[in-house]
């Protein structure tokens, strides 16, 4: 399983690294005055994306949830931490407040408004996913650049560490990292999810950089005596970021799921006054027989958000893949 993950990463790296050379389409070599001679990678990818219904569906889904997350504090009808319907909760009879006037989804097992908790939960979920991806991306960029720029023993050492991390199933690794921290919080979840993503980004970036390093324009830059630092940061790195950017949208989906899984397993914040979908799902499992809707809403939202990021990521990968061009 690990080797297949590694090969998948490397394949993505090799495909996207060849990007620019495929830019010369039938209209690529323009006239002497050709201002609009070629079409840049980003522009042509965007043109394909815009026509792709898969991308539009994914983008709309993500856009909706982001909008909800931003507006949540203003449109949530109640404070998610207050036990407003506590009088309707009965532990003994397994009774939970049903949907009623002002509480469209009813309450949870402590009598808090489920609808408000769902709304504000989107904030946590998106924040965790975004931060985990950014940290993972940052760490991966540093390690990948080290390995790709220096080569030699630096490359070997970094890549062996990366291989070891990749050989552990990602969720298991995240759970282990999360369990290492003494007091778990939302932040430890972010860190655990991020660290799992670092080796993926590092391997991907290193693979792309290695193939860009062999390209003609890098040779040309060397022939001009450009310093090594400038060659790495101006000529190799910017040309290697394409696959990493695509990967980060896919990682957003994985981060949503992993973060929810960690919270579900109780590795998130102990205090549940700030709602989080994974945690809500975890709390709902005691009532799964009698009150399935408590699990249905957070689980459904997690799935839909993760699906949205996956759709966007996959369609971006397709759009940037030179072999898919029509």
């Amino acid at each position: 399983m690990t080797s297949s993950r590694a090969t998948k990463i490397d394949r993505l790296a090799s495909v996207a690294a060849r990007g620019p050379e495929y830019e010369v389409g039938p209209e690529g070599r323009g006239s002497e005055n050709g201002h609009d001679a070629g079409v840049s990678l980003a522009a042509s990818a965007w043109r394909r994306l815009r026509r792709n219904p898969v991308f539009i569906v994914g983008a709309v889904v993500i856009g909706l949830f982001v909008l909800l997350a931003v507006l949540a504090p203003f449109i949530a009808p109640h404070d998610p931490a207050l036990r407003l319907l506590e009088d309707q909760v009965s532990r003994a009879n397994n009774e939970i407040p049903p949907p009623q006037d002002g509480y469209p989804l009813g309450g949870d097992q402590y009598g808090r408004d489920l609808f408000s908790r769902m709304l504000l939960g989107s904030q946590q979920t998106l924040l965790v996913a975004a931060l985990a991806t950014v940290i993972g991306l940052g760490g991966g960029l540093v390690l990948g650049t080290l390995a790709g720029a220096f080569g030699g023993w630096v490359d070997s050492v970094v890549m062996r560490i990366v291989d070891v991390l990749l050989s552990i199933p990602s969720l298991l690794l995240a759970v282990s990292i999360g369990a290492l921290f003494a007091d778990q919080s939302q932040f430890t979840v972010i860190l655990a999810v991020a660290i799992v993503q670092i080796p993926i980004f590092a391997r991907l970036l290193r693979g792309t950089m290695l193939s860009v390093r062999e390209s003609d324009h890098v040779l040309a830059a060397k022939a001009l005596g450009v310093k090594r630092r400038a060659i790495v940061f101006r000529h190799i790195l910017p040309n290697s970021l394409g696959p990493v950017i695509v990967q980060s949208t896919l990682v957003l989906a994985i981060a949503v799921l992993d973060a929810a899984a960690l919270s579900f397993l109780g590795l998130g914040a102990a205090d549940d006054s700030t709602p989080e979908w994974g945690q809500m799902l975890g709390n709902a499992q005691d009532f799964f027989d009698s009150q399935p809707h408590l699990a249905f809403w957070p689980a459904g939202c997690i799935i839909v958000v993760a699906l949205g990021f996956t759709l966007v990521g996959e369609s971006m990968r397709e759009a940037l893949d030179p072999r898919q061009r029509r």
Partner: peptide
């Protein structure tokens, strides 16, 4: 020492 290469497209950095 200066050098001019064969393929002008691939010898220029596409993102700069």
């Amino acid at each position: 020492l200066g050098m001019v290469f064969q393929d002008p497209l691939s010898s220029l950095n596409p993102v700069v």
